[in-house]
Design a protein around this nucleic acid. Structure first.
Length: 473
RNA sequence: GGCGGGGUAGCCAAGUGGUAAGGCAGGGCUCUGCAAAAGCUCUAUCGCCGGUUCGAUUCCGGCCCUCGCCUCCA
């Protein structure tokens, strides 16, 4: 059995078979952040999810090309740019930098491509022109260009592939009724927005005059430009299913760059949102967190990551500060176990044994639509089992090296950076001094030294083989 | 109003037609000069009510609660 994933297109779990005839290359696109502010932990759940997908595909032997776009032009950004008096790029660069810092702190691998919307104005225009040629895009009185869902349907396409849509029954929301765009139908969406005074200096020339791209078209243009008109995986948060992803399909398939029977995207995967303390994050509830908020409270990025991938990606996850505090303990057990194996292995190198229970079980549950919860259960069962063997001296250096390699193999997916720090000489000297005091049964002295070490952030453990010093409180 | 997820121990969270993984927190024990670490061990009848079944937490129906989407949104 190979990897199986839930595809939003079919609303079912399907075997994952890449488009590449050789079954090797996989194109993966994940809608990235809009850099108008610091991203919050809810945003990051999606990006960590994408990172796990990418890493697991790699472990499964696929050659993944991971693309994550940066939306660096849209309404909110333009408003803030005008308020701040900065230029567009001055403004967005700051948040983009913060975003990638946070992404790294969360143990995410850098996406292979990180395209900016503003760098793809050419391909965006080209795509809109194609839609115009196909009679699916039209110009409105205000100079903007819209996508006509009616024309798209008349051309034999289906609008509403990712969800059941009943446009006639749609309840017009506040935003729609107050909408002053001159579009023909309420469901139509902007491909190109004509320049208005509020846009300030943010605009580009186009065949339709000065303006800027609509939001949905950016992703269609960037993904197809970098991954081709038909690619394997498109990820994003569940809220993007409609309209963003549905519109991406419409634009891309409406442009007919893959009208040879292929689809724009073969598998759509959506990550569920997270709640904080059982509630939707909101500033007034005091449960709105960015990653830097949590780091400032003393959490480590890997603890946040662990929590984010402790639950299945399709389930709403309840993020609590209590559980975040416990993540440190849980990860510490893994560190501890790995550190003991490392000591025992004495630097001996080993290859992972793919038939080990740990790897077999891990792969089996991850193949089943990425059941990370079950994967963690496999990890912790392995930790307990390994500790037991360690305690009873059952492991040889060679086996320890292999077990360590096995863990590192699956950790290439979990992405939990080990915390390891060599104790500096003065700390080791103190530990030796304490050991001497213990030998002399001067426990008052040895305990005093232990407190001294603790004050400097080091914990000393007395094992049958002598004292061990490690980081801790 | 339409559509779609959920409700499993103090918290988080897997899973299954044959009485329930894992993590955190908590209790007991072993080890230890004391600790720490580690190990062992204890703590749930799976929202409510019916139905199907030899047997349901798992299937069906109803109800209650909760979350999301319905053109800002990860």
């Amino acid at each position: 059995m190979g990897l199986r994933v839930f595809n939003t297109l079919s609303r079912s779990v399907e075997p994952f078979v890449p488009l590449d005839p050789a079954g090797k290359k996989v194109g993966l696109y994940c809608c990235g952040p809009t850099v108008h502010d610091f991203a919050h932990i809810g945003n990051f759940r999606t990006f960590v999810f994408a990172d796990v997908v990418r890493r697991y595909l790699a472990l499964r032997g696929f050659d993944v090309r991971h693309v994550m776009n940066i939306t660096d032009v849209e309404d909110k950004i333009i408003r803030r740019v005008n308020e701040s008096g900065k230029s567009l790029s001055e403004y967005t660069t700051e948040y983009e930098k913060a975003f990638f810092n946070d992404l790294e702190a969360l143990g995410c691998l850098m996406p292979d491509e990180r395209p900016h919307a503003t760098e793809f104005i050419g391909p965006i225009i080209k795509l809109i022109k194609k839609l115009e040629e196909n009679g699916i895009a039209y110009r409105a009185g205000d100079g903007s260009v819209y996508f006509s869902i009616e024309k798209y349907r008349e051309a034999g396409n289906r609008y509403g592939q990712l969800l059941n849509l009943n446009l006639e029954e749609m309840r017009p929301g506040k935003r729609v009724s107050s909408d002053e765009y001159e579009k023909e139908s309420i469901a139509d969406f902007a491909l190109w927005k004509a320049r208005v005074p509020e846009d300030g200096e943010v605009f580009w020339d186009s065949p339709w005059g000065e303006g800027r791209p609509g939001w949905h078209i950016e992703c269609s243009a960037m993904s197809m430009e970098l991954l081709g008109p038909s690619f394997d995986l498109h990820l994003g948060g569940e809220d993007l299913v409609f309209p963003h992803h549905e519109d991406e399909i419409a634009q891309s398939e409406g442009a007919c760059l893959q009208c040879d029977g292929r689809k724009f995207v073969k598998y759509w995967m959506h990550g569920a949102h997270l709640l904080v303390e059982g509630k939707k994050m909101s500033k007034s509830l005091g449960n709105f967190f960015t990653l830097r908020d949590l780091l400032a409270k003393g959490s480590a990025g890997r603890e946040v990551r662990y929590l984010m991938i402790s639950a299945h990606y399709r389930e709403t996850f309840n993020f609590t500060l209590d559980n975040l505090a416990g993540a440190n303990t849980a990860l510490g057990r893994i560190d501890e176990c790995a550190a003991k194996l490392r000591e025992l292995a004495l630097g001996q190198a080993a290859e992972p044994t793919t038939d080990s229970p740990l790897i077999t079980r891990f792969t089996e549950v991850m193949d089943d639509d990425l059941n990370v919860s079950a994967a963690w259960a496999a990890v912790f069962d392995w930790v307990r089992d390994t500790n037991r063997k360690l305690d009873s001296d059952e492991l040889t250096a060679g086996i320890a090296a292999t077990e360590l390699a096995n863990w590192e193999h699956i950790n290439s997916v979990l992405g939990i950076e080990p915390i390891e720090e060599e104790a500096p000489p003065e700390i080791l000297a103190l530990a030796e001094e304490r050991q001497a005091a213990r030998k002399a049964k001067d426990f008052a002295q040895s305990d005093q030294i232990r407190d001294q070490l603790a004050a400097q952030g080091w914990v000393v453990e007395d094992t049958p083989k002598g004292p061990r010093v490690k980081r801790g409180t």
